[in-house]
């Protein structure tokens, strides 16, 4: 095979036939309001952590919803849970509960109650 000098990258397509969208149901079970999100970006705009770094709650939530879990755990670690997003969310999404539950699901080995 000819060496073209570059590698064809792995497909960046989001393949919804393969992705596991069921994990999101676990969030919805606990936080029914999560489904109401219209991705307006008010949460990520007001975010205290986003002042310092490129943390984007809306994106993390969306990725989780679409089954793209890669590197989400470390992204979630940036959240300070300050609650500004929840105060503003025009759809009344309990954003803090979404974060909390995503965190527990992704980091389950760490966060077990006594």
């Amino acid at each position: 095979m000819k060496n073209w000098g570059f590698k064809i990258p792995d497909s960046r397509t989001l393949d919804l036939d393969k992705e596991d969208l069921k994990l999101y149901n676990k969030i919805v079970e606990k936080v029914p309001s999560a489904r109401r999100c219209i991705m307006c970006g008010m949460c990520s705009a007001t975010c205290s952590a986003a002042n310092h770094t490129n943390f984007n709650f809306r994106l993390v939530h969306h990725k989780f919803r679409m089954g793209m879990f890669e590197s989400l755990a470390s992204e979630l670690d940036k959240c300070m849970l300050c609650g500004k997003c929840r105060m503003l969310c025009p759809r009344g999404v309990n954003t803090r509960a979404v974060i909390y539950n995503m965190r527990i699901i992704l980091d389950n080995m760490y966060y077990k109650n006594i």
């Binding site: 307006c40 970006g41 008010m42 705009a45 007001t46 490129n54 984007n56 809306r58 025009p90």
Partner: peptide, 29 residues
């Protein structure tokens, strides 16, 4: 710009500073 403005503040020359997210670029704005 697709995004909802979350907060505003004022500069000393009374301009309005806007905080929002450009949700299409997934970047704070």
């Amino acid at each position: 710009i697709r995004g909802r403005i979350s907060e505003t503040s004022s500069t000393i020359d009374k301009k309005v500073q806007i905080k929002a997210e450009d949700t299409l670029a997934a970047t704070p704005l």
